[in-house]
Design a protein around this nucleic acid. Sequence first.
RNA 1: UCCUCGGUAGCUCAAUUGGCAGAGCGGGUGGCUGUUAACCACUAGGUUGCAGGUUCGAGUCCUGCCCGAGGAGCCA
Length: 430
Amino acid sequence: MKWVYIEEISEYQDQDIELRGWLFNKRSGGKIRFLLVRDGTGIIQGTIFNPQEESPLFKQFDELTQESSLIVRGKVKEDKRAPGGYELEIKEIEIIQIAKDYPITPKSHGVPFLMEHRHLWLRSQKQHAILQIRAELIKAIRDFFDGRGFRLMDTPILTPSACEGTTTLFETEYFDQKAYLSQSGQLYNEATAAAFGKVYCFGPTFRAEKSKTRRHLIEFWMVEPEVAFALLDDIIKLGEDLVVFIVERVLEERKKELDILERDTKPLEKVKKPFPRLTYEEALQKIKKKGSKMEWGDDFGAPDETMISEFFDKPVNITHFPLSAKAFYMEPDPKRPDLALCVDMLASEGYGEIIGGGQRIHDLSLLEKRIKEHQLPKEAYKWYLDLRKYGSTPHSGFGLGIERTLSWLCKIKHIRETIPFPRLLYRIYP
RNA sequence: UCCUCGGUAGCUCAAUUGGCAGAGCGGGUGGCUGUUAACCACUAGGUUGCAGGUUCGAGUCCUGCCCGAGGAGCCA
């Protein structure tokens, strides 16, 4: 009998097939029994029905417990009463392993308990749907950049020093030296951009900050394009194109999962170019009118970001932040040298910053000056300064946070559900 | 690091002013011919986070500690 997956079950109507999976749930009603089987691609209801005599299948049914692994064989039938529209008339059950006392029962559970059982929680429908969308999102991002002639450049995870010199890094041993886990691939990408023109890196990044909010992970994934000769405006448009592309893709390909998550897709359908754009100072004025106590020079806090995004029904680009609030490599605005040529994109529906980027300093002496001002170790940036000595060009790039973007797409409250095994403050198990 | 809230059965929670520690789910047993987190009946299941204190009596009040959650700052 042919082994098939539930996602392709409609192609096998009225045929005998084999499914390999796990018992999701079971129900019984006298001489009829229902087995809900999942195989990683979907869930199907199997029926055992025998009005004449006691079937040996009934005994196997009674033995089966939630999440027991099994192989079932039978005929595929279309049936409106079945969840999913198809069911399997079971002819044979092969029990692989009986799962005793599966901890995650069909009733409600609390967050600490579920986090403690994250390795099993992944099997439940909502978590499964979120991670299906995550995989789609990552594929969409790769397709977007590959389709535009960008080269994927893997930047190092073990680095000799702080990239930006601002956030706290994880320190580790590198034989007789110290090394740090990467917090961004950007600086290395500035080098690869000068070699390949348009590049992106996609990988994990690490922040040893004691952040304890629904928007922070200790280990998270980021895609960072970098484009030689690009100016701020080019990179803002690139960010818009990227976000429009991934939203469209997820709406097209992951309708089923968005339904499972009960995600209202109307706000996502509005995500079309161009996105509203305002400067830091314009945004500041808007939120001050609404009662924010933020002062010029501060970065937007989480409630401020929410307030700004509520003015619009699309993601919004905020540009020209005070230079003092940004990293050392930011290019100053020639018209306003106290402002940076940078952009933060805030997702709609109050989800906050998903993109941060801008134009990088390409003048050698200005960069040297900034490194000094930020009291960064000059030796560590020798190679980085070389990029300004040998064929320096204006160039720009940004980073998009995968988990924050996914939280928004799925409208998930907490970012911990958007990665299979979240690393959180005070939680590294499982 | 700071602020706030919480910890009672495997899980989710209840327990009035300090007065016999309970329910639903899950487990077990039995029943039901179409269930949709199925349902019905019965049943087993407890060091009330830990240590101390007040009291005739503490899940409840007090002190300290541990663990967890939400938020702030920082950031994607």
